[in-house]
Computed example of a mutant assay.
Amino acid sequence: MDVFLWVVQAILAAMFAMSGLGKLLWTRDKLAGKYPWTHTFSQTAVRSIGVTELLGTIGLIVPAATGIAPVLTPIAATGLAIMMGLAGALHIRRKEPSGLMATAVLLALCALVAWGRFGPYSW
């Protein structure tokens, strides 16, 4: 199960890193094609979400890989799960079922990592 959790962490890290970098580097207008919700947020808010995703990415991998404060890994997974829960609420409010499916999958995977790393497969 430990190897499985590492694979899930790596997949989540890749997904959140790509998403976070996109939100940091692209303008809100350019993101609107992929993320229609960006028109309802300021550029600063979108970039803040990107920074949060990148910090979560670092938290998913670095503490566990280095053995320095590995408790930060499940905390990062929990934070990303909360963020995905809030994103899901936004997609429900905006009536965007396509965005809701991806968000729900990411939430479930983050919750799995948090459960595994806090519980039976913690360090």
Rank of each mutant, 00 (worst) to 15 (best):
47 R>A: 03
47 R>N: 08
47 R>Q: 14
48 S>Q: 12
48 S>R: 01
48 S>V: 05
48 S>K: 00
49 I>R: 00
49 I>L: 15
49 I>P: 00
51 V>R: 00
51 V>P: 01
51 V>S: 00
51 V>M: 09
52 T>E: 02
52 T>L: 15
52 T>F: 14
52 T>A: 15
54 L>P: 05
54 L>M: 13
55 L>R: 05
55 L>W: 02
55 L>I: 13
56 G>Y: 01
56 G>Q: 10
58 I>M: 11
58 I>F: 02
59 G>C: 09
59 G>M: 07
59 G>Q: 07
59 G>T: 11
59 G>D: 06
60 L>W: 11
60 L>S: 10
60 L>R: 12
60 L>P: 09
60 L>Y: 12
62 V>L: 15
62 V>G: 13
63 P>E: 09
63 P>W: 08
63 P>A: 06
63 P>T: 10
64 A>R: 12
65 A>S: 12
65 A>N: 06
65 A>R: 12
66 T>K: 09
66 T>N: 07
67 G>N: 12
67 G>V: 13
67 G>T: 12
67 G>R: 11
68 I>Q: 07
68 I>D: 03
69 A>C: 04
69 A>N: 04
70 P>V: 06
70 P>N: 06
70 P>M: 10
70 P>G: 08
70 P>S: 09
70 P>D: 07
70 P>F: 04
71 V>I: 14
71 V>K: 03
72 L>Y: 10
73 T>Y: 01
73 T>I: 10
73 T>S: 15
73 T>C: 13
74 P>Q: 05
74 P>L: 08
74 P>W: 02
75 I>P: 03
75 I>V: 15
76 A>F: 06
76 A>K: 08
77 A>K: 08
77 A>M: 09
77 A>F: 07
78 T>R: 02
79 G>Y: 02
79 G>M: 05
79 G>K: 04
80 L>N: 03
81 A>F: 02
81 A>D: 02
81 A>G: 04
81 A>W: 02
81 A>N: 04
81 A>T: 03
82 I>P: 01
82 I>S: 03
83 M>G: 13
84 M>I: 07
84 M>Q: 13
84 M>E: 03
85 G>W: 06
85 G>V: 05
85 G>L: 15
87 A>L: 14
87 A>E: 05
87 A>H: 13
88 G>L: 07
88 G>K: 00
88 G>A: 10
88 G>W: 03
88 G>T: 00
89 A>V: 13
89 A>T: 04
90 L>M: 11
90 L>G: 03
90 L>F: 05
91 H>K: 11
92 I>Y: 05
93 R>V: 12
93 R>W: 10
94 R>H: 12
94 R>N: 14
94 R>G: 02
96 E>C: 04
96 E>K: 06
97 P>R: 07
97 P>G: 10
97 P>W: 11
97 P>D: 07
98 S>D: 12
98 S>C: 01
99 G>A: 12
99 G>R: 11
99 G>W: 12
99 G>L: 14
100 L>A: 15
100 L>T: 09
101 M>G: 04
101 M>S: 09
101 M>T: 13
102 A>R: 10
102 A>S: 14
102 A>F: 11
102 A>Y: 09
103 T>I: 10
103 T>F: 04
103 T>M: 03
103 T>L: 04
104 A>H: 01
104 A>P: 01
104 A>S: 13
105 V>K: 03
105 V>F: 11
105 V>Q: 03
105 V>W: 01
105 V>D: 03
106 L>G: 07
107 L>P: 01
